[in-house]
Amino acid sequence: MRTYDVAGQNNDKTILTIRRVFCYVVLILLTVISLFPFLILLINSSRSHVEIQQGFSMIPGTQFLENFKNAIFGKTYNGTRLQWNVFGGMLNSFIVAGFATLLSVYFSAFTAYGIHVYDFKLKNVAFTFILVIMMVPSQVSALGFVNLVSKMGLKDSLIPLILPTIAAPATFYFMKQYMESSLPIEIVEAARIDGCNEFRTFNSIIVPILKPAFAVQAIFTFVTNWNNYFIPSLIISKDEKKTLPILIAQLRSADFTKFDMGQLYFTIMIAIVPVVIVYLCLSKFIIRGVTLGSVKG
């Protein structure tokens, strides 16, 4: 009996070890697949056009600064000057994503607070309405949106990319869920007894309590707006107002036979790096945020 038990355990252990090895192999493989494109990007953005043309190699080149300079200031290659307003694009993207994040996060909490704390006639109607519009893709109203923006004279302006983020149903929904789990109504009542008016209560008492939810949603909203391509490409046509995704998409229509590939890879990297840095610093919050959102939403 005893030998049988031990043998069984050993057998179990072997199977477990085999499974573990198999899992690690798959995970490492996926890691390689996920990171390899970015590794190529990193290597090629440090190599010169000639080096890139000679074939791929895992050894980084020495043209990193040169490519950086070309990506920002442009380069004449085969008689064609290739220059994109990369620096301006980055600035525009920062303006859009930054303000969109501030407005979206603040007003989503603002709206969620209104529905969470107060009992008014249209409360349930308003809540259901927001849930319904959450699933409407932004593309279906794109035509009307472009018409509206041109009527307002706001084409080639960043305002129509920023202002609409005040109405962000998904962010609202997250905030509402968060308030249900961690905003006791007694806090609001205590503030009322102390003579605080409702608007001030929200700003000075509620906002600090919501900080963790703000952090999670701020990351997501920033990333979404930084990466947003469809609507901005319909609104913006002037070079000095273009955001990074529009500039990156434009690289595609450039003639690859007249192109410094080092400059190209570096330009792509400029679009990716800020978000990757933010992500690596805050990955804990991001993954927790996705988990929270999926359990509740």
């Binding site: 990007l41 990156i248 998409a249 890879y265 933010v278 991001i286």
Partner: peptide, 14 residues
């Protein structure tokens, strides 16, 4: 999760 936060336009261009 990393690729999910990266700009789709940039990944496509890459």
């Amino acid at each position: 999760y990393l690729p999910n936060v990266i700009m789709a336009a940039a990944i496509s261009m890459l």
